[in-house]
Amino acid sequence: MTLEERNALEQAALRVRQHIVRMSTNGGCFIGASLSCADVLVYLYWRFLNISPLTVNAEDRDVLLLSKGHDVPALYGVLAERGFISKDRLKNHLSVDDHIYWHPNRAVSGVEFHSGSLGHLLSVGMGMALDARMKGLPTRVVVILGDGELNEGSVWEACLVASALSIDNLVAIVDRNHFQANIRTEELVPLEPLAEKFRAFGWDAMYVNGHDMESLDECFGALQLNTGRPTVVIADTRRGKGLPSIEERADRWFCNFSPEEADALLDELSGNSRATLTSETLIVR
């Protein structure tokens, strides 16, 4: 990856984060999780996935599924930046006149499946991957999982079956931001050693720095699919990444900021001084 390419990706990620911050006011959104997976989504849509607004219905397109659907502001930001939807449309966040709300709706161009309840889309993605394999298509299915989502037994049930069926055009990416709702994962239901768990289930597992475009490029560039085994990439991330005033804070999970706070956060994103936040945050799940 050239320096220019890397800069371009980082600039795209910044614009996606700005979209996310704009969606965190006037009703709010799950900002922390959206910011943690923003770089991964930018990398995938700019460099890895074979999908564009022109091929959004092509049978052989790659498929990305957000199994932890509450990070959808990041996806909407990406879809807007890539031209799947207009940037103006993001202003419709939480309007009943559009389909853009706290969880994905596949009525929005580029959204492959709805989600919200955790633990569903790994198995849905397995069905899509198998369908593509049966048709002899090159389609790869990428499923973004939350680390908190790994509490759900259905994820591990699906992992067993994916391995049994040798679904090797399937890549799960764990947004390993070390938080679930209002607590650190390791303080509630510890997940480590996580890669070993997936390997014991018959998966290939690797780690990547989920905020470094160079590392993401190395990881996904070297990804070996069609090995007979499904693959998981554990992306080491920080919740709230890009905004030091909310980064890694258990209480900054769902936020509904005032317009002034959102403006201050946009400044903060650009490297200016930290925003002063007084809005209450949602602590209960």
């Binding site: 049978e59 569903h120 198995s123 397995m126 069905g127 198998l130 259905s154």
Partner: peptide, 19 residues
């Protein structure tokens, strides 16, 4: 899929939305 009804239904949905 083995004794895994949730996975069965999720997979079925994934296939069905692809035709």
């Amino acid at each position: 899929v083995g004794i895994a009804e949730q996975t069965m239904i999720g997979m079925a949905a994934g296939m069905a939305v692809r035709g």
